[in-house]
């Protein structure tokens, strides 16, 4: 309620100054990750479509660092006038429990949550298992010998493993990598055996026969890899966490005037609808979401609950999700 009143005030104060014709100058888009990353690619391909609707340029600036926290804090330090956008990925939803920052997306206004990645497990071709059940059996029979890649605690791979280990005890050797790209390369070179990664990053390698798909960490099959079974077939109790997956979205600071939010929402919804953007997302194996308003907030909240509690239960959270009133999924 307090936030609402505040934002109404801020909106009033700002709308008196020529806000009617938003935007009247260039907009700065702050990208949370570096040049060439998947967030960067997604944002640079949606922005030209949004620019057309807005009738203003969006100057895209990469401000990488602190798992995205630097960009998030930067945008929150700017005026809430709709001229500074945060273009980010899922990471801020974990800041609070990991103790990285005291803000997350619940403290901002989502303009559009554009797409979601589908997590999956892949294995190197020589691995002596082909399905989820075979993998579980093999690991139980040979504790400690299977090397599983990871992208650090709190990364997607660690959450997927925490999800699975909340149901079955697995003794694996975890080898951390600096991102899923390097880990998938190491998988092909035989340095690790199994890697939890997003479908988009692995799909081309699977189709070329350079690695094999074990399971999709989702509650349904996917048209891109129709022969791969979802994890719920082996572990039905994971249903409560799904659908889950890293996402890309555009956000503005709390308190941004309504007309600016409306205009931006319209612009990015149009961008997410564009044929070439949809085609790009499909080839990269991301599911189009194009969520704004309340549905976007709901999705973000669910993501936060699932990740925060899994991380907490797996024992590497610095703070309990309860401290931030994050409900259990």
């Amino acid at each position: 309620m307090k936030k609402l009143i505040l934002s109404a005030f801020a909106g009033l104060a700002l709308s008196s100054m020529a806000m009617a014709d938003y935007p009247n100058k260039d907009i700065q888009g702050i990208i949370q990750w570096g040049a060439g990353g998947s967030t960067d690619t997604v944002m640079r391909s949606v922005a030209p479509h949004a620019e057309k609707v807005l009738g203003a340029d969006i100057i895209l600036t990469n401000r990488p660092g602190g798992v995205g926290a630097i960009a998030t804090k930067f945008v929150n330090a700017k005026k809430a006038d709709g001229y500074t956008l945060l273009m980010g990925a899922e990471n801020p939803q974990m800041y609070k429990v990991l103790g990285l920052a005291d803000i997350d997306y619940s403290d901002m206004i989502p303009i559009n949550v554009m797409a979601r990645g589908i997590p999956m497990l892949v294995a190197q071709n020589d691995a002596p298992f082909n399905t989820m059940q075979e993998m579980i059996d093999y690991i139980k029979a040979n504790p400690g010998t299977v090397k599983v890649g990871s992208t650090g605690q709190g990364g997607l791979a660690s959450i997927v493993m925490a999800m699975i280990e909340s149901e079955v005890d697995l003794d694996v050797t975890t080898v951390p990598y600096n991102g899923d790209g390097p880990a998938l390369t190491a998988l092909q070179g035989g340095a690790i055996d199994v890697m939890p990664a997003v479908l988009g990053a692995a799909v081309q390698h699977i189709k070329a026969g350079r690695m094999k798909a074990i399971t999709l960490v989702d509650n349904q099959q996917n048209a891109v890899l129709p022969e791969v079974a979802p994890i719920t077939e082996t572990l039905p109790s994971l249903e409560k966490y799904l659908p889950y997956g890293p996402f890309f979205g555009v956000f503005v600071k709390q308190g941004t005037p309504d007309d600016a939010v409306a205009k931006l929402t319209e612009a990015f919804a149009t961008g997410a609808e564009a044929e070439d953007f949809k085609a790009l997302m499909e080839t990269r194996g991301y599911g189009i979401m194009n969520l704004s308003g309340q549905p976007a907030v709901d999705f973000l909240d669910n993501y936060r609950s699932v990740s925060s509690w899994l991380v907490h239960d797996a024992g590497f959270a610095k703070h309990s999700p309860e401290e931030f009133n994050i409900p259990r999924p």
């Binding site: 690619t41 640079r44 799909v203 081309q204 189709k207 070329a208 350079r210 080839t283």
Partner: peptide, 13 residues
């Protein structure tokens, strides 16, 4: 990234 945006599938295929 650029190849993806231009509708190609840069991968082993």
């Amino acid at each position: 990234g650029a190849l993806f945006i231009h509708g190609l599938n840069p991968g082993p295929l």
